[in-house]
Design a protein around this nucleic acid. Structure first.
Lengths: 202, 202
DNA sequence: GTCTATAGAAAGATAGAC
DNA sequence: GTCTATCTTTCTATAGAC
């Protein structure tokens, strides 16, 4: 019994990995269940033993893609230091990420896809967004001045939001632009905005 | 002959207006040619007398939506003044725009839709993006200091890009979030970022 | 649980009457 | 130019054998 359960779990994960990759790259409508299952080495018919609908797979895939990206970021910049923030920003706002073939940030790659989806999908997006914002917030460098007043907390939150928009929005737009030079300029501008006031060394 | 030509032109415009509205709201895949034609008061069959493909309609609709939005903005803030910039920003980063039923900004509402489309569509998006950036750039308030050196020009361009990202990206993300309060906070944060350093009066 | 086969619906594009 | 009718493809979801 334990063996079977384990096998089903493994298969489910394979499907989710394929979903995370394909959906993130092409969006909900351009990816069929067939594509996902084929990528996972299976056929259509087996799909509904694992998920109730395409939409459910989409939501779960987004969670997986978000978690993977977070893990990626955390492993590279575990400490709160200007060097870590620099690495995070440079990795995110890069051509490598823009042209990623298997693991872009779902927040950036799927923004516009979300508004028309069902509650479950929108909830997951919002949840992943909060996670990203909190992660970024904890990594923003601030001179620890006096007691953290309520006002200071609010200002920090506002800054985290603005910077999240600059990261996620910048990547989303850069991907849409049909001009590599312009996209590069845009990514540079966003990097500059993100790192303004951050010292060059830790 | 002139009469017929005029009629065809008017019909084409009706289709384009419907396309601009529906595509902007729901994206490429969620809108059928049937929907667009019905909204324009026509039937499927007549479509291909006006456009070669759905994709062509999409590209042209985006241009129309962009032009309409630009006209809207220009009519409200014709001068370069801090009050005009304020009006522009407040109008764009508003719940009214977020919940717009018939004329959101295609740059924000369709970002993620673009990457998978054909060259024509991507070219139009890029063109509309440049227009938005230039418009914003011309409205950013700057103390005119000395001669406009090359460095100053570059800095201005960088700022225009960052602020365009904050506007377009902020609206795109706000639309995706499934939490009105969080979306409101996000829009507020972006407004604050946009208006930082802008005096309260002209 | 996974497979093949297929139902059932939706949508892009075309044909031909008026 | 616009209509109705239809071809064709694609895709979600289900049925039933193994």
């Amino acid at each position: 019994m334990a063996w079977q359960k384990d096998h089903k779990q493994k298969t489910r994960e394979k499907i989710l990995n394929s979903g995370a990759k394909l959906f993130t790259l092409k969006g909900f409508d351009k990816v069929g269940i067939n594509d996902v299952m084929a990528d996972a080495g299976l056929t259509r018919g087996a799909f509904y033993s694992h998920f109730a609908s395409k939409s459910e797979l989409y939501a779960e895939s987004m969670r997986v893609a978000g978690a993977r990206r977070a893990k990626n970021i955390l492993s590279r910049s575990p400490e709160e230091s200007s060097a870590a923030l620099r690495a995070l920003v440079n990795g995110y706002l890069s051509q490598g990420h823009r042209n990623s073939e298997d693991g872009g940030c779902p927040l950036a790659f799927l923004v516009t896809d979300i508004a028309q989806q069902d509650e479950q999908v929108r909830d997951v997006y919002t949840e992943v967004f909060r996670g990203f914002m909190d992660m970024l917030s904890s990594r923003l460098i601030h001179p620890e001045t006096g007691q953290a007043s309520e006002i200071r907390v609010q200002a920090r939150k506002t800054e985290a939001m603005q910077k999240t928009v600059m990261m996620v929005g910048g990547m989303a737009i850069a991907r849409a632009l049909n001009d590599d030079d312009l996209a590069e300029e845009l990514l540079n501008a966003c990097r500059e905005g993100m790192l303004q006031g951050i010292p060059a060394t830790a």
